[in-house]
């Protein structure tokens, strides 16, 4: 039974969230533009970077010298951007909830729904981080992939609200996929942080003033690690839950199906990242590169294996 009205509401909410996210992205870009102009004009090195990383917005203002207008404007755009991001997230959440209600099941049963859910998870992870760290500067780098994912979801991957095929009718769908989809979101945020770390680290080494708004490379590396340390056990859980489900559906918990193989590759590469961080000569840049490789494997599994390579896990949903 599919409730067409609710499915319609869901689609509209998703479109609305795309619009609001786009506005959020513009506002957050404006924040970058204004703040970099300001920072180019002033000696930033004087500002204790440690304070910038950890403290909330107001505290930063206390530490910094009298704020010039560009800075105030940047701050305003930043706040607007973050508020819009929250609004977009709520619309997005509402859209997914309606989709679930429309089909009387969890809204993650085909690629359109997986993609929308992982975009939602990426936003969720980012917004949760902003409550703990002062990382509004990360916003652009999360909202952009979220917009791309949602754009792809509503165009290429869109599937009408439908019931599930028998292979997916299992409570393991609820457990396994929510873990995988949340991992996808968190991996995205982790990758964004690792890229920023690499850029910042390069800037610090070459003494360039680009990205002076960002915290020190060390601090970025630490936050990136935190995110990856959060997502690695979750991904481990997703893989184990998937294995249990496979055992229940096909009688074997591991069969080296392409999807399983790439889940394994992704897992091993992220394990290598955690090892690299504890190995002399691999910490820092190389470890970040390993984390990005892991994200590449994850994306490969999601897009290439789902859409191109065939296997038992073909739920692209058309």
């Amino acid at each position: 039974m599919v409730h067409e009205n609710l499915a319609d509401v869901s689609d509209r909410l998703i479109y609305a969230s795309i619009l609001v996210y786009a506005l959020a992205m513009l506002a957050l870009c404006a924040e970058w533009a204004f703040s970099s102009r300001r920072f180019a004009a002033e000696a930033v090195e004087a500002v204790p970077v440690k304070a910038l990383v950890g403290a909330g917005g107001p505290e930063v203002a206390e530490i910094l010298p009298a704020a010039p207008p560009a800075r105030e404007r940047a701050e305003k755009f930043g706040r607007i951007g973050l508020s819009l991001a929250v609004l977009g997230f709520l619309l997005h959440l509402g859209g997914m909830a309606c989709r679930g209600l429309a089909v009387d099941r969890v809204p993650w049963g085909n690629m359109y729904e997986f993609s929308s859910m992982s975009a939602l998870a990426a936003m969720g992870v980012f917004l949760a981080l902003t409550r703990k760290y002062d990382i509004r500067w990360l916003g652009v780098f999360v909202v952009t992939p979220v917009l791309l994912t949602l754009g792809l979801a509503v165009t290429v991957l869109y599937t009408d609200a439908q019931q599930l095929q028998p292979a997916l009718q299992s409570y393991w769908l609820v457990i396994h996929v929510i873990a995988a989809v949340t991992s996808a979101g968190a991996f995205t945020v982790g990758a964004a942080l690792s890229i920023l770390y690499l850029v910042k680290e390069h800037a610090e080494r070459t003494g360039s003033a680009t990205l002076s708004r960002l915290p020190a490379a060390d601090a970025l590396d630490r936050i990136a690690y935190r995110v990856h340390a959060f997502v690695f056990p979750l991904w481990t859980f997703a893989v184990i839950a998937g294995a249990i489900w496979a055992e229940n559906a096909w009688g074997r918990y591991w069969g080296w199906d392409p999807k399983e193989t790439w889940a394994f590759i992704t897992w091993v590469v992220y394990a290598a990242y955690l090892h690299a961080r504890a190995t002399a000569g691999w910490k820092g840049r190389r470890a970040a590169a390993v984390a990005l490789t892991g994200f590449g494997c994850f994306l490969f599994n999601y897009f290439v294996v789902n859409l191109v390579v065939t296997g038992l896990h073909s739920y692209a949903g058309t």
Binding site: W256, T261, F264, I265, V268, V269, H275, T279
Partner: peptide
């Protein structure tokens, strides 16, 4: 050593790739 573990982990990931393609 940790370095060897790291390299072996990479090899394991790399070795699995042909198995999927």
């Amino acid at each position: 050593s940790m370095r060897t573990a790291l390299i072996l982990l990479f090899l394991l990931a790399l070795g699995a790739i042909p198995g999927s393609l």
